[in-house]
């Protein structure tokens, strides 16, 4: 017989809040990368504006979790969901911050002559978006196999970011006029690479919630 119906409903509500926060963050990554690649300043400004909603959701979920811990004394998988959700929200909030940083790069670069299209940055944008989407799906479906794949994808994000850095350095050596813009491109690639790291943290939290295994610092590609 199913018991603790009220508590189970609260856990379902927690999952729903996490999915809502993840959806907002996914939109932020989608918009920030598109704004960067298409030099869309309106979209970049909207990313900066919308970050407050992600922060508010983090606060709301923190409060909700605190009450669940204090009032319901969860155990085992319920406890792991709550501890894991705290990890998820911290990392989702940081992804939101990296999106804001990326939007600021876009806004700065829009005030300068455009640089040639950068295929590696396009790949990096698509790659970290894919990582985040899969991390969210792994949480929703409690799919630890998919979560493990995300850990392996982080290596590619790191490599792409490094290649962007090396290319930018060699371009700057040849043409000093673009140094300022190239530095911002390097920083943009760093923001994207960080989003990849944070998506990996999300995947690690999914594995912790489902299996109780702490794979932090071990789950790398």
């Amino acid at each position: 017989m199913q018991q603790r119906i009220h508590f189970t409903q609260k856990l379902d509500e927690l999952r729903m809040q996490l999915i809502r926060m993840a959806a907002l963050t996914e939109k932020a990554v989608h918009d920030a990368t598109r704004a960067y690649l298409e030099n869309d300043t309106d979209l970049a400004e909207s990313v900066v504006m919308n970050d407050a909603a992600v922060n508010d959701m983090e606060d709301a979920i923190d409060t909700f979790n605190l009450e669940l811990l204090a009032l319901d004394q969860p155990m085992a998988k319920d406890l792991r969901l709550i501890i894991g959700s705290m990890r998820l929200t911290v990392n989702l909030e940081r992804i939101g911050d990296e999106c804001v940083n990326l939007a600021h790069r876009t806004l700065f670069l829009s005030t300068r002559p455009p640089l040639p299209a950068n295929a590696r940055m396009e790949r990096l944008c698509a790659h970290v978006q894919d990582m985040l989407t899969k991390a969210v799906r792994a949480f929703v479906d409690e799919d630890t196999v998919l979560a493990g794949e995300i850990c392996a994808m982080d290596h590619t994000a790191d490599e792409l970011s490094l290649k962007v850095l090396k290319e930018a350095i060699s371009t700057m050596v040849e043409e000093t006029r673009i140094v300022e813009r190239s530095v911002h491109v390097i920083m943009a690639s760093r923001h994207l690479e960080r989003i990849g790291d944070l998506a990996t943290n999300l995947a690690e939290a999914v594995i912790f919630i489902k299996e109780g295994q702490n794979v932090k610092h071990r789950c790398k590609g």
Partner: peptide, 10 residues
């Protein structure tokens, strides 16, 4: 065990 300690049955 998990169902019991999480209060799912008893």
């Amino acid at each position: 065990t998990e169902d019991y300690i999480t209060g799912r049955f008893g």
